[in-house]
Simulated scan of single mutants.
Amino acid sequence: MPAIGFVVIGRNEGERLRRCISSILEQSWALQRSTGADSSPARDEGIAAHPIVYVDSGSTDGSVEFVRSAGCEVIALDDAVAFTAARARNTGLKHLVQKFPHVEWVQFVDGDCLMQPGWLSKSSAFLSVNPEVAIVCGRRREVYPQKSIYNALCDMEWDTPVGEAKACGGDFLARRTALESVNAFNPNMIAGEEPEMCFRLRKENWKIWRIADEMTSHDAAMTSFRQFYLRNIRAGFAYAERCAMHATKKNPYCVREVASICLWACVIPLLALIFSVLSPLASLLLLAAYPAIVLRIFLKRIKLRYSLRRSFVYSILIPLAKFPQFLGVLRYAASRLSGRRTAIIEYK
Rank of each mutant, 00 (worst) to 15 (best):
T160Q: 15
M1Q: 08
S307P: 12
D112L: 08
R19I: 06
G192K: 09
G62K: 04
R301G: 05
D56F: 00
I208S: 03
E73C: 07
G5Y: 13
D110T: 13
L271V: 09
P117C: 05
P195T: 13
P41Y: 00
Y347G: 00
V258P: 03
W264G: 03
L127G: 08
R140L: 12
V255M: 03
E164Y: 14
L337G: 00
Y332R: 05
A88E: 12
Y144F: 15
P291N: 04
A259Y: 03
L201T: 02
A333M: 10
R141V: 09
Q32T: 14
N183W: 04
L271E: 06
A80Y: 02
D219E: 12
G62D: 04
K207I: 10
V8P: 11
T177K: 15
R305G: 03
E241I: 08
V143R: 10
A184K: 03
E180R: 09
C198A: 15
T223I: 14
A42D: 11
V7D: 08
C113A: 10
R33Q: 14
L281N: 01
D219W: 08
T160A: 15
G236L: 04
L304K: 15
F326A: 14
R226H: 12
R202N: 05
L337Y: 01
E13L: 08
N130S: 14
M215K: 06
P187Y: 01
S279W: 04
G58F: 01
A37N: 07
G10H: 04
Q146F: 10
L230E: 07
R202E: 06
G163D: 06
T223S: 12
G170I: 10
T248C: 13
R33Y: 12
V277Y: 10
F312Y: 06
A240Q: 13
E26I: 07
R340C: 07
D155P: 14
N12L: 09
A86G: 08
L270W: 00
S260G: 04
A238M: 03
E164V: 14
P101Y: 08
F83C: 04
R19G: 13
D219H: 08
S276T: 02
K166W: 05
T342V: 10
E257A: 15
I9A: 12
S181K: 13
I293L: 09
Q107Y: 14
W158N: 05
G58E: 02
Q32I: 11
L320G: 00
R202W: 00
A167Q: 02
V329K: 02
R210H: 14
C254Y: 02
E73N: 05
L201A: 07
E65Q: 14
W105T: 11
P117H: 02
G10W: 00
P319T: 00
S335E: 00
G71V: 04
A85F: 08
L230H: 03
S59Q: 04
V162T: 15
P291Y: 00
D79R: 09
N90Q: 09
G14I: 05
S59I: 07
A259Q: 07
D112E: 10
F237M: 11
A321V: 01
A165T: 01
Y314K: 05
R19F: 02
G236M: 04
A282N: 02
R340I: 09
V7C: 11
E204A: 15
L230A: 03
L287A: 13
W158A: 07
Q32R: 10
H218V: 12
I268S: 06
R242E: 09
S28P: 14
L17W: 05
L299F: 12
A134T: 07
D44N: 13
A244V: 06
V258L: 06
G5S: 13
L96R: 12
S338Y: 02
K166C: 11
T248Q: 13
